Amino acid sequence: MSEKVPMTPEGQARLREELERLKKIELPQVVKDISVARDHGDLSENAEYHAAKERQGLIVARITFIEQTLSRAEVIDPSKLSGSKIQFGARVKLMNVDSDEEVVYQIVGPEEADIKQNRISVSSPLARALIGREVGEEVRVVMPAGPRTYEILEIIYA
């Protein structure tokens, strides 16, 4: 049996939108591009044709990946969660003990992670260190940039 992929309802919606765009817009467009490039003659030296075929392969691979991910999705709605311990879906307000800098991260599924939007993967070192912890606790995490210590200030389920 395949391993379940945890995901928020928003993450599931984003993947479904991407899948629809790939199937209804990008794949038909690349098929047209291949047809146009094929009409230009000798395929062995046709860079447009080869580029379009490569793009088609990438699109088909992404479609397959998204379909498999969605089929294994375990959708967890953070707004229905509560408690004093950090779990998947929680937004966690942390303070870097060394710099006094505060940051809020949401713990999400691997396909939803986006550090620019402060969404970290449940499988990341920081998320793994936070799961099961409570407000007031300190966690020490070895990050690529070196060790960091965070104090948990708040846990938000919304």
Rank of each mutant, 00 (worst) to 15 (best):
A47D: 11
K93N: 11
L130Y: 08
Q29F: 04
Q117M: 15
G83R: 03
G57L: 10
R128D: 07
E151V: 10
E20F: 01
G132S: 11
S99L: 07
L126P: 12
P144G: 02
V141A: 03
E20I: 06
Y150P: 02
E111M: 15
Q68M: 02
L43I: 13
I34V: 05
L153R: 13
V103H: 05
E10W: 03
A51W: 01
V97Q: 09
G132H: 06
T8Y: 02
I25Q: 11
L15P: 01
N46I: 01
L70G: 03
R148V: 06
A51H: 06
E138D: 06
N118E: 15
P144E: 09
A51T: 07
I120Q: 14
R140C: 01
E112K: 12
F65I: 03
N96S: 15
A47L: 09
E3C: 02
I66D: 06
A73N: 09
A47V: 10
I107L: 15
V142L: 14
E48M: 07
L70R: 08
V135M: 07
K80D: 13
V122G: 03
M143F: 09
P78G: 13
E26Q: 11
S123G: 00
P110F: 00
E154I: 04
P28H: 00
S35P: 01
A51F: 04
E3K: 04
I34C: 01
L130K: 11
I63D: 10
I25A: 09
S35A: 07
L70Q: 03
A37Q: 08
G132A: 11
V92Y: 11
G136S: 04
M1E: 08
S82T: 14
S82R: 14
V122R: 05
K85T: 15
Y105S: 11
R72F: 00
G83S: 10
P147C: 07
A51G: 03
I76A: 10
R133V: 05
I120H: 13
P78A: 10
V104W: 07
D39L: 12
A37G: 02
Q12P: 02
M95C: 12
A145Q: 14
V122K: 05
M95N: 13
E102R: 14
Q56D: 08
K80M: 15
E54N: 14
G132D: 10
E74Q: 13
G57R: 12
P78M: 06
A127R: 11
N46G: 09
I76N: 08
N46K: 11
